[in-house]
Design a protein around this nucleic acid. Sequence first.
DNA 1: CCTGCCCCATA
DNA 2: GTATGGGGCAGGA
Length: 998
Amino acid sequence: MPSSSISGASRPIQSGDHLYLVDGSSYIFRAYHALPPLTRKSDGLPIGAVHGFCQMLWKLVREADGEGDGAGPTHLAVIFDYSARSFRNDLYDQYKAHRPEPPEDLRPQFGLIRQAVAAFNIACVEQEGYEADDLIATYAREAAGKGATVTIVASDKDLMQLVGDGIEMLDPMKEKRIGVAEVEEKFGVRPDRVVDVQALAGDSVDNIPGVPGIGVKTAAQLITEYGDLEALLQRADEIKQPKRRQNLLDHAQNARISRQLAELKCDVPVEVAADELGVRDPDPERLIAFCKAMEFTTITRRVADATGFDPAKVEPGEVTVKYWPPEGATATPVSPAAPAAAPAATLATDAEPAAPEVRSNGAHGPGTPAAAAAAAAAALEGVSVDRSAYETVDTIERLDAWIAEAYEAGVFSIDTETTSLFPMQAELVGLSIATAPGKACYVPLAHRNSDGLDLAGEPPRQIPLADGLQRLKPLLEDRGTLKIAQNMKYDWLVFLRYGIDVRPFDDTMLLSYALDAGLGGNGMDELSERWFGHKPIKFAEVAGSGRNKVTFDLVPLDKATEYAAEDADVTLRLWRVLKPRLAADHSATVYETLERPMVTVLAGMERRGIMVDRAMLSRLSGDFAQSAAALEAEIYELAGETFNVGSPKQLGDILFGKMGLPGAKKTKTGAWTTGASVLEDLAAAGHELPSKVLAWRQLTKLKSTYTDALPGYVNAETGRVHTCYALAATTTGRLSSSEPNLQNIPVRTEEGRRIRKAFIAEKGMKLVSADYSQIELRVLAHIADIPQLRKAFEDGLDIHAMTASEMFGVPVEGMDPMVRRRAKAINFGIIYGISAFGLANQLAIPRQEAADYIKRYFERFPGIRDYMDSTKAFARANGYVETIFGRRCNYPNITRGHPSERAFFERAAINAPIQGSAADIIRRAMVRMEDALEKAGVEASMLLQVHDELIFEVPEDAVNDVMPVIARVMEEAPLPAVELKVPLRVDARAADNWDEAH
DNA sequence: CCTGCCCCATA
DNA sequence: GTATGGGGCAGGA
């Protein structure tokens, strides 16, 4: 049988009856993301949508009075889509194409909802080849034709064409009635012309093409003017706008097909007649059994109260949990430790800070979470950015009005304007707020007037900074109002310095990063362009650039308002597009546990900064300059002429041109290669000049990049260096550090380590450095599940020596250091997605020999090859890979481009789960660190992170208490989300400076 | 003054 | 062979 319909009571529909038709399929999707996630207590089965559905059904059933006075239902049915295909696919094969699979935790609820309908004893209709909407249309028209009232319980805009003549809609989430007026408001035309509008505007969710360049607004205007679609298409050549006219002429056929797709079928040969949909009383025992099985305590009690049935007498019923629709061809994730359901399980068990509770903005349409996200994007597409509509708020009254508006909205975006890009020295100049798309303002707080002579004149009219902040503080700290910013870490730090602790918040940059890492930048201008095709004003356009650049407090208020309010406006729009995608993309846990909590953690670290010994750096600078000058003189002598040693071009000419040394290689641009490895080869061959150049380069590098540059970053107020961590800069989840970069402070050479010694603790304090030992190899051993590696880490062995012993069959005792070095290079190579070429380069051995090593390695560790092959295959099939915590790293170009480029992305994809999982682990440790230290009653401040190392500043007498706490938090960081198959080990040391602590 | 390139510091 | 940020040079504005 092509359907599984169940009829209700037999009762011919007549005038005065009231038929309720519930759109079950769209309800499920809608409830899934509109309602808070809910799981069955006993086993974690996701049941949020089922729960919402049952509450709604119970309400409807209670209203049924069997009398038909127009209020409660006399007839009631829940309608479902039977399958994805319908007659519309024959009209247009792309119809509803690109629909993503339903989310994992929604799947079992499809079956459960059908069982709920049965438990309520309500008619349930689904029919092959027809969508729920067509069945609803058929029943609705028939019943209305017989004089009955019809209520369609749905919010799907596709059903709006049915409204009128006794048919209305009821939005089950907002409990809002949708009549002719509401439809006109939405589509700009009467319900009977809705399909014409849809035919022109198209629909990205259902993949209905429409006519390019025409949205709902334009479509409504055209239909109103020309009457209907056919008339418009006939007279399209009368349209004045050339582009629009051409599009209508070119895409007329598309529009006609779109209309057929949008128009609902009112004459479906229904298998269950409308007369068979009469309301029946539920069987209380069966209903209670179902509710008990689902562990719905409140509904169980209500049903019991209403029916007088004692729930204690009823055993929980049997419910069948099925993953429906059946699992498709979705590939399994790379990591055996991260099965598809891992993110959901993580949510249920992980004791992480929960998302702040925020009122839904209700802006999402029906459909899957992904479709909802697409709908949110589509809804924002038509709203153009109108900079002239922004308000400059210069009175307390207007500021209070905006604050009230923000409270009312429950969520708003905010952006600060300051005098500096460094949040630690930025002074607040003003701030902008947006409470809805297009509804934004700028509040100047500390602007000055430039009179053109670079002298500040009378300030413009504005609210004094202190007064403004005093008004805003309660709002910014209000736990019930969500603040949104693009790169909140900056604004959060600025506000903190003015005594305001902004929370709760969302960050659109981090949302984009959690969702789309690797697909492009996450800066606001780029996101605005990507999502809205809109280019915001550039900072340089309002503040100038180069020598003409002024601080923002000198920007005139009209310009400042346009720029600042637009940023807030765009940020809010981005949030509306990106936030709904978290659920759809299963990235909510990554965002909530690995991204958002990092904002305040990193802000704290940046604020504390680290002390550097400027005198020591200055002495070093002098030393380096002297040594470099001496080397320079020797180099000129050897070369027989003076030249710029720092110019690779000139150096190449000397070495390979004038002196005719061997081993000359070309770079991409045709210049001589003068990289370190080339110079080392020459030096090893006994040439003096190259070895002097190498030494010179090292010294000048250390001098220019570190000893000269670092003092310039010392903050005048704090006397410390405050680096800036980027949370969303890498594809793998690592942080990056800049201004200055404190993640590449030298450590390998003795000269370099002298720079490290200049990073010191405050008097009476020590620096504690705690670093993970071999974390990436441990992660690899876990992911690829390599028995020998697991055993070696378990036993605390020297992992490289063990690898060498396995590969070359030599005992670890008395091993030749060269043999161990080779194994070490291979181990690192594996992490980097090894190639014979790269390994040969690294070890300076022939390519064939490197290939033999790799072959031998794979023979000894076949699991590694399996991991690499399966990861590559997964990345090629899906365009992304995941870490063990579900962070997604995208590689969209892995199947495109030249073979060498593809090979590059393949290596990156092999590396990303390893590097990324390690990055996730240290993020988890950092997020928990402050609380753990506080709970343990020990004092310590986290100052720096260098990928696998954390640096703290600790009072001398607390050092011994602090170190075990730090090590424990770091070693246990993966728990409880992931239990690694290998132990993590952390080494911690304390000293007066970073070099000795490391 | 900006950009691409080369080179090099870290994990 | 992975992931970054940054300095100096050189060429084109």
